[in-house]
C-alpha cells in the first residue's frame, strides 16, 4: 500500500532516528511512504496560541498537498498529527473558514483523505500480522512501559486514536517484539511539552516524575511515539535515569532491520545493553 508521509520538522533533526526507524519498518512490511513534496511546518504549539487563521491554514496546506497526491496522510509527530486532524475537522465543519483557506491557497478542499498516526497505520490487523511474521530477534527479557503523553489521545474527539485515559494501541504493537510491556498509571500524563524552552524546571518535574514512575513499576525503558515527549524524557530525567525508545525502533530491532543499532546510538541516554549485539551499550 501507498501513503503520503508528512515527517514534520523534528524528524529532520532531533528525532531523526524516529524518521529512519519508521521508514525502515514501513519498507519491511510493504508500506510505501511518499513524502509530501515541499512540505512546510504545521504551526505546532505556537500558531493556535497567537493566530487562529494560521493554526488551520498551515496544516490545511499539507492536507491539500496530500489530496493532490490522492493518498491518505501519515504523521509521526503527535503535535503535527493533532494539528492536521484538527484542521481537517474544522475545514469540514466551518464553511467560512474553509472558503478563506481555499482562497489563500487557491485550491479546493475536498476532505477526501484521512490523517493517521503510525500507531494507527502499523496497528492495522494485516500489518500487525506482517510485523509479527518478520520478528527474528525477539526482545525477550526487556521490560518497558508505553507512554502516550497528550496529543495522541487528547482531545479524543479530534485524535480518534484510542481510549483517552487508558489507550493500548502502542502496547499491542510493542508486545509483538517479545518485550514485556508493563502496565502503569501515567501513560497519558503530560511531559511538559513545549515548556522545555522557557520553563525547563517544570519539564524536569513532569518528565522526571514520569521516569521515576516508570522505574517504580520495574520498567527498564520508556517507549514513546512523539518526538517532543522523547526529547523531554531523555533530557529531563529528574535524577531517575532510564532509556527512552521510539516504538518503531523496538519494532525494527526485533525485526533485525539494518541500521537499527545506529538509531539507538543517537539517543542522549544509552540504550539497554541487551538491545545491542554483543551486549555493549
Amino acid at each position: 500500500m501507498k501513503i503520503a508521509y508528512y515527517p514534520g520538522c523534528s524528524l529532520e533533526s532531533s528525532a531523526r532516528e524516529y524518521d529512519l526507524s519508521f521508514r525502515a519498518v514501513c519498507e519491511a512490511v510493504g508500506v510505501e511512504l511518499q513524502e509530501v513534496p515541499d512540505w512546510s511546518c504545521c504551526g505546532a504549539s505556537s500558531a493556535h496560541q497567537l493566530d487562529p487563521f494560521l493554526s488551520v491554514a498551515l496544516p490545511a496546506r499539507e492536507l491539500l498537498r496530500a489530496e493532490e497526491m490522492g493518498l491518505d496522510l501519515v504523521a509521526p509527530c503527535a503535535a503535527c498529527f493533532l494539528r492536521l486532524k484538527e484542521a481537517r475537522r474544522r475545514l469540514l465543519g466551518e464553511e467560512a473558514l474553509r472558503e478563506e483557506v481555499e482562497e489563500a491557497l487557491r485550491r479546493r478542499f475536498e476532505g477526501r483523505i484521512q490523517v493517521y498516526h503510525p500507531l494507527q497505520l502499523l496497528g492495522r490487523p494485516e500489518l500487525k500480522e506482517a510485523l509479527l511474521g518478520k520478528v527474528v530477534r525477539p526482545l525477550e527479557g526487556l521490560r518497558v512501559v508505553c507512554y502516550y503523553g497528550c496529543y495522541l489521545v487528547r482531545p479524543p474527539q479530534v485524535t480518534e486514536l484510542d481510549d483517552p485515559e487508558d489507550p493500548h494501541v502502542m502496547e499491542d504493537l510493542v508486545g509483538l517484539t517479545g518485550a514485556e510491556v508493563l502496565d502503569w498509571s501515567w501513560k497519558v500524563d503530560c511531559c511538559g511539552g513545549a515548556h522545555a524552552l522557557l520553563r525547563p524546571e517544570v519539564v524536569e518535574r513532569l518528565s522526571g516524575g514520569l521516569c521515576l514512575r516508570a522505574r517504580e513499576v520495574g520498567a527498564e525503558g520508556i517507549v514513546t511515539a512523539c518526538p517532543l515527549c522523547h526529547s523531554n524524557l531523555e533530557a529531563h530525567q529528574g535524577g531517575h535515569p532510564i532509556p527512552v525508545y521510539y516504538f518503531t525502533e523496538l519494532l525494527g530491532l526485533a525485526m533485525g532491520l539494518e541500521g537499527a543499532e545506529g538509531w539507538l546510538r543517537r539517543h542522549l541516554v544509552s540504550p539497554d545493553p541487551k538491545l545491542l549485539v554483543g551486549g555493549k551499550a
Binding site: S13, S40, C41, S46, Q49
Partner: peptide
C-alpha cells in the same frame, strides 16, 4: 509572561524558512 515571544519567534521561523530549524 515570556511565552508570546517564543510563539512569535516560532511563527517568524516558519515564515522565513517554511520549516522550523531547531538550532
Amino acid at each position: 509572561e515570556r511565552e508570546p515571544e517564543l510563539h512569535r519567534v516560532f511563527l517568524k521561523e516558519i515564515e522565513r524558512r517554511g520549516r522550523v530549524h531547531e538550532l
